[in-house]
Write a protein that binds this DNA or RNA. Structure first.
Length: 891
DNA sequence: CTAGGGTTAG
């Protein structure tokens, strides 16, 4: 400029000024620099220039300074130029000031400035941002009237707007009618479908786009990845992942974030982790996605660890904070949860409804309901999730009344949703409250929530738990769609009903409907095999565990250990145990129980010590198992030692089950007086299980006085468990007190209870044979009866005398002898002897305890037939061999 | 491109 002065004409000088200002405008890289240029424009008297003011407005908008944009616009006197209007409307829209943008558009129209094709995209964006349907219609019509219906940019904006409104049909219509489309048109539609959960359509459009051969960009990919995730389209997702390398957009943060999210939706931790580790640049979204993903996979500790790592690099935002809060809830880490909450408050971060809901849930899960309530009460607007979370918290902490009170309050504020009802059903399931459950079922039907799968699943579960399996089946059959949980629940119902045939049928139906069993399915089926000792089915399921890839699941391993041991195959059980890489307290408990059932108390004790040495803390179930094992091996001192250890070493308060185990331990070893003293010294009120344990032992040892006292106590307790009445009745029968027997039978009837009929069963060459007590209608009945007669004579010669106390009916002694011969386990054993080759070991299962007389008889039979006979009764295994039993008479 | 409450199993 120095040298130019004087040499140039005015016009030349003017041109020079224009071009240098123009250049300065272009190169300004901040709002501050821009305001300097702005000042220069004003001093040069060029602020009315249409050319500069428009560019200033846009440039200010670019630097997120819409106020300066407005200042420039307001200083422009000449407001008839559409370029100025377009600039300001675009500037406002760009900065999210949508209503202001629409205001300016309206003013523009009032001032009779005719919009052009550049006006509409911004105005449409503003309508989209405001969700202003009315205005959107007006604007769309106007653009159409002005003949812009085939404009690419307007079309793209319209697609985007309708997609945001969720009006995918309209978006699709605009798209279909466009004569010319670019990749943005496709992206807008695909992302619209994706964002609204129309995943199939999103993928379909993506495929069409691929066919056309238009070049994709990172936006296309980040729109289609959620669709793959949503559909769990693993192969598709991997193909797209592979494609990224080829088209060279694999380094894009947004794309990588999409991949991360997708792999987490596939539950593919390894793939997600690989994407994350290979990312050169990460942003807070990447970290949030990973933290959240770990949380969803229930890897909460990892999730918190990642959060800690993230904090070094990025300031955590609301999403990171809530993700880690969620983990705190699951980890029951109240302290850290509080710390994060404090951090949120300290940094002035404003929680939205979702974040507050997570806080409510976190505090509720940690049992701090006061804090939950405080968050709830401080919320400006609550939704159903807020209410549900709080109510669930009260239910879980046992404050049922408070929870119900809140539920009633909730109904005044807003409508409970299906989750609220699922929660109520779950509550009544736990309480086994069929009456309240039925009331809720009525409400559910009225409100139409019964069409929801989850609700139906909860209903099935509720009816099953309350023993109304018929109603479970009714709900089940009426369902239109069923998911894995439905099948798991209904199979569990069959197990509950002990209708194993129906259970197996259901498993087949599940297969027919094409549903793959999940871990929970196997966790339902395996115990079913355990309880009926279905060795072969159990083995088959063990095979499918590998096929389904569940072999690393600890819970599956635990169920297998139990299955093999309960099916009489201790060897396989131990094998599974040894092969398990990860063992938890349940695994060890299964092993201890297995040894206990086989009467190997020493090995059970060894296993318990090994468990402790491996650093696993026994829980109350482990103590039940070890005391049970001691009891069944006559290890009284050891049993008592462990009973004391649970409180002293592990601070576990003994429950009624533990006291029952100790009573069993003492009385099984004929220390009845001690057992009775123990009952009187216990801090809990003895229930039927306690007196029952004492009474069963009295029956075996014949202590009349204690038996009568225990019987009286049980009768007083008015238990609804039929087993105890039967026990009492059996004791009176053994004593010959038939009047009492009749009285007990009557009270069983008046209570509407039904006696569990005794039965035994065995598997011979893949077929199950079931024998009821005194049953006469089975094949080979004559032969079985004849064999039992021969055996009776043979064992009598060996010194056997029938123990008639085990006959529960008031009949003549001869008839009593016959009745003993009709005991189901004897029928099964005789049947087994007849139908297997000499020397073959027999295995018999029985649903109740083996009676004393059968126990003696089986010992004799094992000797004279030279057979190993393995009998599983309700409690344990008895291995009869050469006239002895493995239980050492501690049964 | 990232977030919340619910059902089965133990």
């Amino acid at each position: 400029m120095k040298t130019a002065n004087g040499l140039k004409t005015n016009t030349q000088r003017q041109w020079f000024l224009y071009s240098s200002i123009s250049e300065a405008l272009s190169s300004a890289s901040s709002s501050k620099q821009l305001s300097k240029v702005h000042a220069l424009i004003i001093t040069s008297g060029l602020n009315q220039s249409v050319f500069f003011s428009g560019r200033l407005i846009s440039k200010y908008a670019h630097f997120r300074d819409p106020l300066s944009s407005l200042t420039v616009f307001d200083q422009v006197a000449l407001k008839t130029n559409v370029y100025q209007w377009n600039s300001i409307i675009r500037a406002l829209t760009h900065n999210g000031l949508f209503s202001k943008a629409l205001e300016y558009y309206t003013t523009m129209c009032k001032m009779k400035v005719l919009p052009d094709k550049y006006t509409f995209p911004s105005v449409i964006n503003a309508c989209a941002g405001l969700f202003d349907f009315e205005m959107s219609n007006v604007v769309h019509e106007r653009a159409f009237e002005m003949g812009f219906e085939s404009d690419l940019y307007i079309g793209n904006a319209l697609i985007d707007m309708y997609a945001r409104f969720g009006h995918l049909d309209k978006a699709r219509m605009v798209f279909d009618e466009m004569p010319l489309r670019d990749v943005i048109s496709w992206n807008s539609l695909i992302s619209g479908y994706s964002a609204n959960g129309h995943w199939e359509e999103a993928l379909e459009m993506y495929h069409r786009l691929r066919l056309i051969g238009l070049v994709l960009d990172s936006y296309t990919i980040s729109s289609v990845l959620p669709a793959c995730g949503g559909l769990v389209a693993v192969t598709e997702g991997q193909t797209i992942h592979g494609l990224l390398e080829k088209i060279g957009i694999n380094a894009d943060v947004i794309v990588s974030n999409g991949l991360l999210s997708m792999y987490f939706k596939f539950d593919r931790l390894k793939d997600a982790r690989r994407v994350f580790d290979e990312m050169v640049v990460t942003d807070s979204v990447s970290w949030n996605t990973v933290i959240c993903g770990y949380s969803q996979l229930e890897l909460y500790e990892e999730s918190v660890k990642l959060f800690m790592e993230m904090v070094d690099k990025f300031t955590p935002d609301l999403l990171s904070l809530t993700s880690v809060l969620r983990a705190c809830g699951h980890l029951r880490d109240l302290e850290f949860g509080k710390f994060v909450h404090d951090y949120i408050k300290r940094t002035g971060c404003v929680c939205d409804t979702t974040a507050n809901n997570i806080l409510i849930d976190m505090y509720a899960k940690c049992g701090d309901l006061l804090a939950s309530r405080e968050v709830f009460d401080g919320m400006k607007s609550c939704d159903t999730v807020s209410w549900n979370s709080l109510i669930k918290g009260y239910f879980k902490s046992g404050s049922l009344d408070e929870g119900m009170k809140l539920f009633k309050m909730m109904k005044i504020d807003l409508k409970p949703d299906f989750v609220s009802y699922v929660m109520l059903l779950s509550l009544y399931t736990q309480l086994s409250d069929i009456n309240q459950g039925k009331v809720i079922h009525c409400d559910i039907t009225k409100l139409g929530f019964d069409s929801d799968i989850v609700v139906s699943n909860a209903l099935i579960g509720m009816y099953t738990k309350c023993g109304q399996v018929d109603d479970s089946l009714k709900v089940f059959e009426n369902m239109k769609g069923r998911d894995v949980v439905t099948w798991n629940t209904i199979i569990a119902s069959c197990v509950h009903l002990e209708d194993f045939n129906l259970g197996l049928k259901m498993i087949n139906r599940m297969r027919m409907e094409g549903l793959m069993p999940d871990v929970a399915t196997l966790l339902v089926i395996l115990p079913m095999c355990s309880s009926i000792a279905a060795k072969l089915q159990g083995k088959e399921i063990h095979g499918s565990v590998f096929k389904l890839g569940f072999e690393a699941e600890v819970s599956i391993g635990n169920a297998l250990v139990e299955m093999y041991s309960k099916c009489g195959n201790l060897k396989h059980s131990l094998q599974v145990f040894e092969n398990m890489k990860n063992k938890d307290v349940v695994t060890w408990t299964a092993l201890i129980s297995a040894y206990g059932m086989y009467g190997d108390g020493k090995k059970a004790l060894g296993a318990f010590s090994e468990m402790e040495a491996s650093g696993i803390r026994p829980d109350h179930v482990a103590f039940i198992a070890i005391i049970f094992a001691c009891s069944h091996s006559g290890l009284v001192q050891e049993g008592l030692k462990y009973f004391n250890r649970m409180k002293n070493d592990y601070n576990i308060e003994p429950r009624i089950e533990h006291y029952a185990c100790v009573v069993d331990l003492l009385s099984r070893s004929k220390r009845l007086t001690e057992a009775e003293e123990f009952i009187h010294s216990m801090p809990l009120k003895p229930d039927a299980s306690i007196w029952g344990a004492l009474l069963s032992a009295c029956r075996a040892s014949g202590d009349i006085e204690i038996a009568e006292r225990a019987s009286k106590r049980i009768t007083e307790l008015n238990s609804y468990d039929v087993g105890y009445y039967v026990l009492v009745s059996n004791v009176y029968a053994a004593l010959g007190k038939w009047d009492q027997v009749r009285m007990i039978r009557k009270s069983i009837k008046t209570r509407g209870l039904k006696k569990d009929p005794g039965c035994s069963w065995m598997e011979i060459q893949k077929k199950f044979y079931v024998f009821g007590t005194g049953e006469k209608f089975f094949e080979q009945f004559e032969e079985v009866n004849k064999l039992l007669g021969i055996l009776s004579d043979l064992i009598a010669k060996e010194g056997y005398i029938a123990d008639l106390r085990y006959v529960l009916h008031d009949v003549e002694d001869d008839e009593k002898r016959d009745m003993l011969c009709g005991h189901s386990e004897r029928l099964a054993i005789a049947f087994g002897l007849l139908n297997t080759k000499p020397g073959t070991p027999l295995q018999v299962m029985k649903n109740l305890r083996v009676c004393g007389d059968c126990h003696t008889v089986t010992k004799y039979i094992s000797q004279i037939t030279q057979r190993e006979i393995l009998v599983r009764d309700a409690n344990r295994f008895h291995l009869f061999k050469d006239g002895n039993c493995s239980c050492g008479d501690h049964w």
